[in-house]
Amino acid sequence: MNEENPSVETYIVVFVALLILAALTTGIAYINLGTLNTVVALAIAAVKMSLVGLFFMHLWYSRGLTRIVVLAGFFWLALMVLFTLADVFSRSWIKPPGP
């Protein structure tokens, strides 16, 4: 499987990056960006997740199969969210007939 493994230096670099990102996301919350606040916060969370996943969880070094499992998880999660929201947000498009 993963013949090459991340070195201690990689772990330290990733850890420092994670700390910086955590500080960043807290700091940015105090700046008014409008709706962008949410977008930026989620984008940073996604980057942090990728760092943890790729390096701490060795996804970067692992085979296709593991990645497929991860992608499948995301895909099914997306299905659930998408179809539920598709219902919730299209309910108001059509008004029931009546007084």
Binding site: W76, L79, M80, F83, A86, D87, V88, F89, S90, R91, S92, W93, I94
Partner: peptide, 22 residues
């Protein structure tokens, strides 16, 4: 099988558009 659960909700105040799709 994961895409069609909406057909159980046809009469549960689900939106008609979601009904079409499922």
């Amino acid at each position: 099988s994961f895409l069609v659960w909406g057909h159980h909700l046809f009469v549960s105040s689900q939106s008609v558009y979601a009904g079409f799709i499922s």
